[in-house]
Computed example of a mutant assay.
Amino acid sequence: MNAIANFDGAEILNTFVSLSVAIVLGTAIGAERQYRQRTAGLRTNALVALGASAFVDLGMRLMGNQGATQVLAYVASGVGFLGAGVIIKEGMNIRGLNTAATIWCSAVMGAFAGADRPAEAVLLTAFVLAGNTFLRPLVHWIERAPIDESATEAVYEVRVAASETRRDAIRDQIIELLEVASYPIQDIAEHEREDDVEIVATLATSSVTSQQLDAVVDSLATLDGVSHATWSSRTSD
């Protein structure tokens, strides 16, 4: 008979309001994701918000503010695993980070609703929608801006294809030319290939001037025993 004894109309109404706020606002966040054709769309964000609200509301019903605080820790970690599921790595590209962050924010919004903070839940929803909508033009502008190599932080490598008989001399020339250009070498490795040896020099610096590296590569390409010389960059960890 505990179910009847624990029946409290006021508490049930309070839970109804909390869950309603959570699912309505979660639907608003999810609708924007659904419109963008993201992996986690309307239903996912609405259910994440609803679940977080229900957990926090239950914690408050059972143990008050202390219970809600304890539940919040588990909600945060649980949603972290859920967000990791929408992150996809394809080669060097990673997709889904923004969607995972949106799910995380939906959970926080639901927690606000479950903790009887509907105004804060509405405010957070507005910020999430603003971040996913109004920041897009800024992202596009930054992505299309010309890249200044001297301002980037990346890993730079000089690659030289050398003949087997000239590998040591060419290796010394690579080190010398890069030191003259003030680009110290962090690591240098050799990879045996069918017809030659590829010497890869990884620079210690995280920013370069493309013209200087082009000049170094051009000088290396003229050396006796060098069939190809180039340089490349990749995102640092």
Results as ranks from 00 to 15, higher is better:
Ala181Phe: 10
Glu192Met: 12
Arg144Trp: 09
Ser182Met: 12
Asn98Val: 00
Asn2Met: 10
Thr235Ala: 14
Arg117Val: 07
Ala215Thr: 15
Val217Met: 08
Asn93Glu: 10
Glu176Thr: 15
Val217Lys: 02
Ser106Trp: 05
Ser210Leu: 06
Asp172Ala: 15
Leu129Thr: 05
Ala40Tyr: 07
Ala3Ile: 15
Gly30Cys: 10
Ile88Trp: 08
Leu135Lys: 04
Tyr156Ser: 08
Val180Asn: 11
Glu164Asp: 13
Tyr35Arg: 15
Ser182His: 13
Ala201Arg: 01
Ser150Pro: 08
Ala107Phe: 01
Val139His: 14
Arg136Glu: 14
Thr44His: 05
Glu143Met: 10
Ile188Ala: 02
Met60Asp: 06
Leu97Tyr: 08
Ala52Val: 00
Leu47Pro: 09
Asn65Gly: 06
Leu203Lys: 00
Thr15Lys: 05
Glu190Thr: 14
Ala31Asp: 05
Ala76Phe: 03
Glu194Met: 09
Glu11Arg: 03
Gln66Met: 02
Leu138Lys: 11
Ala215Pro: 07
Gly78Glu: 01
Val158Asp: 04
Thr39Phe: 06
Val200Trp: 07
Val217Asn: 07
Arg234His: 13
Val17Glu: 00
Ala119Cys: 02
Phe134Leu: 15
Thr15His: 11
Leu58Ala: 04
Ile4Phe: 13
Val108Trp: 01
Val155Ile: 15
Val48His: 07
Glu194Phe: 11
Val208Asn: 07
Ser227Gly: 15
Gly26Asn: 05
Leu58His: 00
Gly30Tyr: 04
Gly114Pro: 03
Glu164Val: 12
Thr222Glu: 15
Ser20Lys: 00
Ile29Met: 12
Thr27Ala: 15
Ile199Asn: 00
Leu220Met: 09
Gln186Val: 00
Cys105Val: 08
Glu153Phe: 08
Asp187Gln: 15
Thr205Gln: 09
Trp104Tyr: 10
Thr152Trp: 03
Val200Pro: 02
Gly85Leu: 09
His191Ser: 10
Gln70Val: 06
Phe55Asn: 00
Glu153Gly: 11
Gln37Gly: 14
Ala76Cys: 08
Ile4Asn: 07
Leu97Ala: 11
Gly91Met: 08
Pro146Cys: 02
Glu179Phe: 14
Ala22Val: 03
Gly64Ser: 05
Ser77Gln: 04
His191Tyr: 13
Gly83Arg: 02
Ala100Phe: 08
Ile94Trp: 02
Val75Thr: 06
Ser150Phe: 13
Pro146Met: 05
Ser227Asn: 13
Gln186Ile: 03
Thr209Gly: 01
Gly110Leu: 02
Lys89Phe: 04
Ala10Lys: 10
Asp8Leu: 01
Val200Glu: 09
Arg166Asn: 12
Arg43His: 12
Ser53His: 00
Arg193Asn: 10
Ser206Pro: 07
Asn98Phe: 00
Ala130Arg: 06
Trp231Ile: 05
Arg171Ile: 03
Ala189Cys: 00
Cys105Asp: 06
Arg36Asp: 12
Leu13Val: 14
Ala161Val: 13
Ala113Tyr: 06
Ala3Trp: 15
Ala189Leu: 11
Thr15Val: 11
Gly59Thr: 02
Leu220Glu: 02
Ile94Ser: 05
Ala181Gly: 08
Glu198His: 07
Met92Arg: 10
Ile174Leu: 09
Gly41Cys: 07
